[in-house]
């Protein structure tokens, strides 16, 4: 197995799927000549040409709609948003057109397409460029929402997303592109809707997804040094959510902390907690706690930004609290 960056793992997935199916094309801002704003599509224009790697004007609503129209007549577009912050301009197309087309046409028009791009905060990009959109998108029936944490997951999940006959929202971590890990060569897919137990323990369950799954693993390693072994359930797919894996873990540990990058109100964690209290009520030894971004727009100043974000200290404190150690 090769060690690749998350960026190169995504590139490999794109390349393999472009070779596999000539209905697949990539469209977005700067994806072709510029090689991608984050270089995820590096080299693809040279290999596949301008009909399959397509630069667009800065017009998110428009090219999202172009992708949808082309999917209605049998192509399999991958629409790249330079970041999900800009995708808000296209939200009407994602929600009103892509997500609902199959249903409102009585099953006549599936939407085999992927909307992908970086999601979540990076460093000091301030309010308009630092937000995690998964709770908004996961709210919508008809969409699948995927949040890979590692290079291997990025490859396996993106290949599955491209092959899926539904509209898949694929949220890449803006801070994850340079992270490295082992990635299986060639054909490697991960089914959508399956969580991954990334650490095993019996003291507490940490549920996380995307970038926060890495934080959860880091927290697990720190706690292990104190003799506290925790389960880390990486959801990998927020919708559909693998609630079975959450339940199995919580029934074992009897405690849970839910970690997410987004805001608290109506967040992904709220959905996880709702599930746990319904299905694992008698298994719980303490209330489930959530760790998330503070309920403010992201500030610019380094110290304020740090304070706004979920971090290891907040997560460790939450774990200790549900264990009645703090």
């Amino acid at each position: 197995m090769a060690v690749l960056t998350y960026r190169d793992a995504l590139n490999q997935a794109l390349r393999e799927e472009l070779i596999r199916d000539d209905r697949v094309f990539l469209m977005g801002e700067e994806v072709a000549q510029y090689n991608g704003a984050y270089k995820v599509s590096k080299g693809l224009l040279d290999e596949f040409g301008p009909m399959r790697i397509v630069d667009t004007p800065i017009t998110e609503l428009g090219f999202a709609g172009v992708g949808i129209g082309s999917a209605m007549v049998g192509l399999r577009p991958i629409i790249e948003f330079m970041t999900w912050n800009f995708a808000l301009l296209a939200i009407d197309q994602v929600v009103n057109s892509a997500a609902k087309m199959l249903y409102m046409s009585g099953g006549q028009f599936p939407m085999p397409m992927v909307f992908r791009g970086p999601n979540g905060s990076a460093l000091q990009l301030s309010a308009q460029h630092s937000q995690a959109w998964e709770s908004w998108l996961a709210h919508i029936p008809g969409l699948k929402v995927v949040t890979p944490a590692t290079p291997a997951d990025a490859k396996g999940l993106l290949k599955s997303a491209i092959r899926d006959d539904n509209p898949v929202v694929f949220l890449e971590g803006e801070m994850l592109y340079n992270t490295r890990g082992e990635v299986p060569d060639g054909e490697y897919t991960i089914p959508l809707g399956k969580a991954d137990l990334k650490r095993e323990g019996d003291a507490c369950t940490i549920v996380a997804h995307g970038k926060m799954a890495l934080l959860a693993m880091q927290v697990a390693d720190t706690l292990a040094k104190e003799g506290i072994a925790v389960d880390v359930v990486d959801l990998r797919t927020v919708r559909p959510m693998d609630v079975e894996t959450i339940a199995i873990s919580v029934r074992k540990t009897n405690r849970a902390v839910v970690l997410e990058e987004g805001w608290e109100i109506c967040g992904v964690g709220a959905q996880v907690v709702d599930f746990i209290q319904r299905e694992c009520f008698d298994d719980l030894d303490s209330p489930v706690l959530r760790v998330h971004q503070e309920d403010v727009p992201m500030p610019y100043a380094k110290n304020l930004e740090k304070a706004a974000k979920p971090d290891a200290a907040k997560a460790i404190a939450a774990v200790k609290k549900v264990m009645y150690l703090a």
């Binding site: 428009g62 090219f63 949808i68 129209g69």
Partner: peptide, 9 residues
Amino acid sequence: PLAAGVGWA
């Protein structure tokens, strides 16, 4: 835009 997408296809 959907019509443009059909045209693209």
